[in-house]
């Protein structure tokens, strides 16, 4: 059984069909990169898998469970990094991460995690006063505090400098190597090519390619394939 299963997923938001008959899967121990233009349905699909949006039709299943009805036992196995961060700005990074760790029975070592992501030096500062890149790394730490079996990371390296991006890639790779299924949305071809074992390309709510990096590239570069597959899919 795949750790993440999307089967014929449809999600209508008002009059807009944000996700249209999408099907793909992600495996434990692997990084799956979901690419697509803005408005392709990546974030909506992720939020259906995180239990934040209810599918209009089709199946979104994570670790065999329907996320919309998932109990705390399931949510503890899933790490979530939202595109907009989801961090309370009036507290500090250290206080927030310790709080999230208290929601889990056996969380990761907070201090080591912050040091690993380079936010230990600013952990006593109000999140409101952190740079965009620092907030991104705190949000990633918050997603991994519970040592998840599945991690959904929505654009985890957006706005990061090259050093920080390498740190984040290393941690994502190690997370997958340790056995987790990691699903990453990204606009970076370099990120997908360096990180992903499995690639999904979406356009206009539909999946236009899915497979290993080599299968999706089909002899071209990922960038060439992406533009060929998503031409006309921009909203």
């Amino acid at each position: 059984m795949s750790a993440v299963e999307v089967i014929g997923l449809r999600r209508d938001v008002g009059a807009v069909r944000a996700v249209d008959d999408a099907s793909w899967s992600a495996q434990s121990g692997a990084v799956t990169a979901v690419l697509g233009p803005n408005g392709a349905g990546k974030t909506t699909t992720m939020e259906c898998l995180e239990g934040l949006q209810r599918p209009t039709a089709g199946v979104a299943r994570v670790l065999g469970v329907d996320p919309w009805h998932a109990p705390a036992e399931h949510r503890a196995r899933v790490g979530v990094m939202l595109q907009e961060g989801g961090l309370p700005v009036t507290t500090t990074a250290r206080r927030l991460l310790h709080h999230i760790s208290r929601l889990h029975a056996a969380p990761a070592d907070i201090e080591a995690l912050m040091a690993r992501l380079g936010v230990d030096r600013v952990s006593g500062r109000s999140i409101r006063r952190l740079s965009g890149g620092e907030r991104q790394r705190v949000a990633l730490a918050a997603a991994l505090v519970g040592r998840p079996d599945v991690a959904f990371l929505d654009e985890p390296t957006a706005g990061l400098d090259p050093h920080a991006r390498l740190d984040v890639w290393d941690l994502i790779r190690e997370t997958a190597t340790a056995g987790a299924a990691v699903v990453v949305t990204t606009h970076s071809f370099e990120e997908a090519e360096r990180l992903a074992d499995h690639v999904v390309i979406m356009s206009s709510g539909r999946v236009v390619a899915e497979g290993s990096l080599d299968e999706v590239r089909a002899g071209d570069t990922l960038e060439e394939r992406y533009f060929a597959l998503t031409a006309g899919g921009r909203r």
């Binding site: 705390a72 079996d149 941690l171």
Partner: peptide, 16 residues
């Protein structure tokens, strides 16, 4: 930054 194995996810731990 050197790797810190303690930060790497392990088996499912469950909620508090």
């Amino acid at each position: 930054i050197s790797p810190a194995p303690a930060t790497v996810p392990g088996p499912a731990t469950g909620p508090a």
